[in-house]
Amino acid sequence: MLLPAFSYERPAELPGALALLQRLAAAGVSYRVHAGGTDLVPELKRDEAAIGTVVSISRLEALRGVRARPDGGLEVGALTRLSALAEEVRERFPVISDTALQIASPQIRNRATLGGNLLVDNRCVYFNQSPDHRDVHAGCFKAGGEVCHLVPSAKRGAQPLCRARFVSDLAPVLILHDAKVVLARAGAERELLLKDLYAPDGIQRTQVAPGELLTRVLIPASATRRVHYLKLRIRQALDFPSLGVAVSLDGKKLGVALTGVNTHPVVLAYEGALDATLKQACEDGPKRVAPLAQDFFSPAYRRQMIPVLIRRAVAVLSKKDTP
């Protein structure tokens, strides 16, 4: 497949990049930010929709790398490659490192970035197809059409309109670390809890406003919190999560974040005796998600596996507890 025609910008400095994004946003030009490109380029090749501009941020070295923060936490540039992330956070946050290494393949991790994984486009069997295939099953809402093949009753104006599923592996793990993202725009920036970044719709996926750029991820330190992540997929490489379950334990607090089974990460928080909170999480998890027939595994199976993986993750964390 051939890339469609678009204009291409590759600013050298962050301020220039932000100014460019602001200009494009103000002019109403459709643009996409290109970091590692492992998700974007295949999508561009498949996309029939006209793309105005692709803005490559690959020269913004300031957005690359991991820095220690005074509180013992880390600040990670959004452009940090997944392979570098896995390497550099291994000591402080081994679970983040392990999670990064469960993404895609070594070759892809050498291109793909942290920011790209957090903002990875939602996926659906009806959307991630060639234009030719969309001639067979009419283009869906996300592809600019007027139908949802998964929820045929959906009409424009419905919330959510699109059920394409959220597939980031790192998001649930970072959410349970109370990570924040920094969204920069020309002359200003704001911090947002990662869990608040996402919107419950497969098209309007995030709170990133036109002209804004995700520049950094802030991961606070915690002496007591431990997180574990389990990824369900048929192959132990390449595949996006059919279901991803992150679990955190912090004293009396149990946190659960689910990926791959809804339009956005689903976060559950409990406090109390572990027996009770665990039981509750296992009951709530399957109810709080909306898996649809858009993956290798059936919706019922993915639901059924939620308590299994929550229990297993808790078991791993509890084992680590006892020296």
Partner: peptide, 21 residues
């Protein structure tokens, strides 16, 4: 297949075992 159309016509969605398997 859905309505005669191949729904997983890619190496991402047609699952060949990886080296791990």
């Amino acid at each position: 297949y859905e309505a005669g159309a191949v729904q997983n016509a890619s190496f991402l969605e047609y699952k060949i075992p990886s080296a791990f398997e």
